[in-house]
Design a protein around this nucleic acid. Sequence first.
DNA 1: GTAAGTTTTTGTACATGTATAGAAAGTAGC
DNA 2: GCTACTTTCTATACATGTACAAAAACTTAC
Lengths: 231, 231
Amino acid sequence: MPQPAGSQPAGSRRAPRKATGRPPRISREEVVGTARRIVDEEGVERLTMRRLATEIGSTPMALYHHVRDKEELLVLLLDDYAARTLRPTEPPADPRERVVTAAAAIHGALAACPWIVEVLTGDSLMSAHSLWFVEQIVDGLVACGLPPERAVQGYRAIWYYTAGEIMVRATAARRRPDDDRPTHRQQVFADLDQERLPRLAQLADRWAPLTAQDTYRDGLEALVDGLLAAR
Amino acid sequence: MPQPAGSQPAGSRRAPRKATGRPPRISREEVVGTARRIVDEEGVERLTMRRLATEIGSTPMALYHHVRDKEELLVLLLDDYAARTLRPTEPPADPRERVVTAAAAIHGALAACPWIVEVLTGDSLMSAHSLWFVEQIVDGLVACGLPPERAVQGYRAIWYYTAGEIMVRATAARRRPDDDRPTHRQQVFADLDQERLPRLAQLADRWAPLTAQDTYRDGLEALVDGLLAAR
DNA sequence: GTAAGTTTTTGTACATGTATAGAAAGTAGC
DNA sequence: GCTACTTTCTATACATGTACAAAAACTTAC
């Protein structure tokens, strides 16, 4: 089982006895750093394992001793990105405001980083560098009077909402520009059954501009208010 | 420009003059139907274009005259699935209940269909067969007193929340069973900074069971209540 | 009949992620 | 020195989606 290097056996902190085995020529940091440069300069779609290997001066399969697979590499990139952009700020005094502000901060960071959808998994947000914001959300909900279990549930709801918004947004943006075929939505709205779906038919022409608006914050506040209202 | 066959020129309804060009040996329906069978029997990961082609008795590239690419094929599959499982039912009288019921119906159908995450795009839900439920949601929100624009916003928020939940759920389930490395979450929770993140540290051991619970409906109701509360 | 035009099908080729096997480069024990 | 062991790296191979070009099978115009 190839142990993904990087974290040396945490047991013996001192006495760093000489490592055994062939000495590495590349490091995980070098892999992630170079990958970051490629993504920054040319976009995530140009990041291939072969490209990354030649850029580093190695071979594709050598990378796999430092990252488990490409997905893990992308998660590391996301974490790296979060570490650089998500800076804790002075939290507002009002606990509800603390929740909203922290969620909006996470959302803003992710929205500015359009390629993450490929890694937007359940655990993605749990990177060490975003935990402070999670803490703000959970703690804010508790401070508003929710019992801890409900606060965790509330955090999860907020995360679902946030991740879903990011995903839909990114998918819409990923549309190839030279894609001249009509959108699925356009297609469907074209022949609406006025009898069966009167409300949608009535809103058909206003649908596109309405869905183009950024209403993340409105929905977020509604969700938080709903969570805080005792049921 | 290869016109994706299937919809013949809608202009001349009558006088179905003989089609020109080489007559097709396979149809879009056959492609989708066979794909559905493969997915049903062996799972979506076994659905490859080559496999599908040989199953039909054709060649991989021939498929591309009936579907634009594999993603479109998956969207067609999802639509087909929705058509079979999403049956309109008698909507509740209470408009708020109508909203919640319709959203839960969509969520239930998607949750039972674990492979859709690969297609869970912005437009995916806009398939013709799910529009009735969208109508229920929008109409219910309007009936609760929201102006139409706010109702559309509300529908979008509900969809973000729902899609996010499905995505996170599916990603968690996709974990390969023989994956013995610790989850990212476990990793992170292992060394929590008690000083900086007291709330999370306090909840660390309860986190896993809490996030295993299905709380979709609670969050949905909170969201709907928040949307309905005039701000 | 033949020629032109259109649509579908086929064959070949490429880029990609990554599995697998073995070579290379070091340390420790003798 | 030599052998055993460990870790890292290299070479080769495969499955996949799909781009591209050419062939095949029709209809229509002459």
